[in-house]
Design a protein around this nucleic acid. Structure first.
Lengths: 222, 222
DNA sequence: ATCAAGCTACTGAACAGTGATTTATTAATT
DNA sequence: AATTAATAAATCACTGTTCAGTAGCTTGAT
């Protein structure tokens, strides 16, 4: 359907060379740009790469976005939206133990974020943070800080209920997040190289659960 | 010609505009390149940035290196050398408990690697892995895999002696490494942004020790 | 020790390729 | 036929690389 039309547009249909799609273009361009950025990095992807990946030519992206940087910003702003709210809700609605909740959250996170294209964006943000300070701040304030706060609340709940011992909250939150981040980063940096895999890239979800278990075992009151 | 540029070129001697230093140049250029790459990323760093940071002009780096990419490779190859051997030796010579050894190793690692310019290179490698697959493989084989093996040995020793319970080795190693990596990465990506700090960037060494304690608590036989 | 003469590390202007952005033109849609 | 989405050629700024010239160093004859 869509793919076919793109093909015929660029490849072998001599009549209809292209199609007008004012509504769909912006999203198509952003999708294409995300995958290109993730694949090659910001600087190494040319506007033409983005355009071709979106099935248009060099000039078209400029009809919808001011320039390359604005495309990057639009991607960043558009991607960090609703996932966190989902996790927030998950945490609020859950009425089992804090441990069980954490397991749920990790599984959910992996499925919705860790696995998804937005994981590539996270790696990209980390790589490009120094070059886009405003975006880095945005990323930090919109995603990292709230994630930390959410985890803090869950941990505090576990401590209050006596399920966990009174560990230093701030450091423990970071310790819980670390495996998630490294899994995401590694799978995007070395995941493609044949043979270059460590435990966490072979079986990401399994690793995440094991890592969580390990920390939880250390958190338990005994 | 500009007086300032002459001054900056030679620091403070208005007569001798430059000096011949065949022996020292390569190292100076590599040092300069490392700091520029770490600061701006590979693509965003111009050869002239490197040259100026090394106190020479655009042409000079080409007297010692074929091109920009070779400079990057030279840095990568030159940086991942002896630290791991030091840690290896530390582990072999140590005769206390596995927990105490791990604490020693973390402290040593932070001082010699986490804190140092080579930490910036690690972040850089992660960011550029997709663009330099050969280098990424080199980095993986020379640094990541051996680090994993070293930690495996230490863990296994702890398990054999009955100090630790029999956890899944591969995943546990990755779980131990995760806080080190995130600390390094975060401090380089968000460390400069005022106000953007999480627990691990505020007090890195403290965080590393706490994170290790947490996992060790989970590892202990009780 | 001095100084001329040669050597070469280094400079900096010029070159060439690249890639972001603009714009005149074309053709799909209404 | 009018409108305008999209193209494709042109522009323009930038940057990696080269190279002819310059100046700091070395050597050896005096």
């Amino acid at each position: 359907m869509n793919i076919d039309s793109v093909k015929s547009m660029t490849e072998n249909c001599p009549i209809a060379r292209w199609r007008r799609k004012k509504e769909a273009r912006p999203a198509e361009i952003l999708d294409a740009a995300l995958s290109q950025f993730v694949e090659k990095g910001y600087r190494a992807t040319k506007m033409e790469d983005i355009a071709r990946a979106a099935g248009v030519t060099k000039g078209t992206p400029y009809l919808y976005f001011q320039n390359k940087e604005e495309i990057f910003k639009a991607i960043a702003r558009g991607t960090f939206v609703a996932n966190l709210q989902q996790l927030d809700k998950l945490a609020d609605d859950f009425d089992g133990s804090a441990s069980a909740l954490l397991h749920h959250m990790v599984a959910h996170w992996w499925q919705e974020v860790g696995c998804s294209p937005s994981a590539g964006l996270c790696k990209l943000m980390i790589a490009e943070a120094a070059n886009f300070p405003e975006l880095a701040r945005f990323y930090f304030e919109e995603l990292i800080a709230p994630s930390n706060q959410l985890l803090s609340r869950v941990l505090q709940r576990g401590i209050d209920s006596g399920e966990f011992r009174a560990v230093p909250l701030v450091h423990t939150v970071d310790a819980l997040l670390a495996p998630l981040l490294t899994t995401m980063i590694f799978s995007h940096s070395f995941g493609q190289l044949p043979g270059c895999c460590i435990g966490s890239t072979k079986d990401p979800l399994g690793f995440l659960q094991d890592a969580l278990d390990l920390v939880l075992h250390g958190l338990k009151n005994n």
